[in-house]
Amino acid sequence: MADPLFGWDLTFKTVEKDVKRKADVIVAFIHWNLTKRGFRSIGIGDERTLSGDEERSELLPTGWNDKDNYALRYVFENKLFILHALSTDGNLIINLMRSEDLAVSNIALKIDDTVKEQKGSIDKMIPSHKELIYQVKRDLIDTVTEKSTVTAETQTSRPESSNRRPEDPLRVPGRPGIVSDPPGLCSLFWLPTASPPHIPSLGRSDLDPFAPSGSGGMLYNPFEPRRDIENPGLGIPGGLPRGAVPPGARFDPFGPPGGPMPGARRPAPPDADHLPPPGFNDNMFM
């Protein structure tokens, strides 16, 4: 397993003679974390432009700790990052800014609690170095370097499949005012506007929940206009007595809808749905 502290001793040896205060140790430690993840130093300052010919290095630049506050420039994946560290009231506030969109991450550390010694081994200088490595990676580096996890659907056309199913004659554009489903999905609302010559339109309205009343179908609708609502006793000799069916109550007649009233000669309206198909004979009376 790789040593998580690999490279720290070499980094600190290069700046050990320049360390003046405890905050320098923290900045050197953060610099080491940045270089481990591919950042390269290109000098000091807060200039937010790249010329392209900057010299990139894994070492801290000359004069990195000459001032009380720190401003270091880095390049990562051809993008400019600026590290600021501000010492105030015993705290060190560190910001890492991505210059192209000014995205900023930051952490704040108590200097005396973080750094115990200015020289020596990492265990003596920064006893909590393991926790600090994790905090720098999570809160300072990953926040401004991780690529967005939002995936956008690519708008590329799919090639036509060679084994595409034949076109269904019932799959035609949807009814006006109804949002059609995407191609390839079946929808009960995609109903034919006109039946092909070889397909009769019997039962079409049964599949259409928005079909107008009286449009035909194989299911009996007790509320269609052909039903004699005013004569609920149709089919019973003499009919039902007045008041037997409360107003507005649903009541299915005992006889076929549209049938003649007792003593009337009105013929029943044609209704082919209840008739057997031509040539049908089930021999049920043999």
Rank of each mutant, 00 (worst) to 15 (best):
M1R: 13
L5I: 00
V19H: 07
K20L: 05
K20Q: 12
D24A: 01
D24C: 04
V25R: 00
I26V: 07
F29V: 01
H31F: 02
K36D: 02
F39I: 04
D46Y: 02
T49Y: 09
L50M: 11
S51V: 06
S57V: 01
T62Y: 09
D66H: 11
D68Q: 14
D68K: 15
R73C: 03
R73E: 07
Y74R: 07
V75Y: 07
E77A: 02
K79R: 15
K79E: 14
L80G: 05
F81L: 05
I82V: 15
H84Y: 15
S87P: 12
T88E: 12
D89R: 09
G90C: 04
N95W: 13
L96T: 07
L102A: 12
L102K: 11
K110C: 04
I111M: 07
I111L: 00
I111N: 08
D113E: 08
K116M: 01
Q118C: 09
K119F: 12
K124D: 04
I126G: 00
S128K: 02
E131M: 02
Q135V: 01
D139L: 05
L140F: 01
T143K: 12
K147I: 05
E153D: 07
T156P: 06
T156R: 08
R158L: 10
R158K: 14
S161P: 11
P166H: 08
P166M: 03
E167K: 15
D168Y: 15
P169T: 06
R171G: 09
R171E: 14
G174P: 03
G174S: 03
S180C: 04
G184R: 08
C186F: 12
L188K: 12
P192H: 06
A194P: 10
S195V: 11
S195H: 12
P196F: 10
P197G: 13
P197E: 11
H198N: 10
R204T: 10
P209F: 03
P212Q: 07
G217A: 09
M218Y: 15
Y220V: 10
D228P: 07
D228T: 03
I229F: 08
I236V: 13
P241S: 03
R242V: 07
G243D: 02
V245T: 06
G248W: 07
D252M: 00
D252Y: 00
P253W: 04
F254E: 05
F254R: 06
P257M: 02
P267A: 15
P270Q: 13
D271E: 10
H274D: 09
N281D: 11
M284F: 08
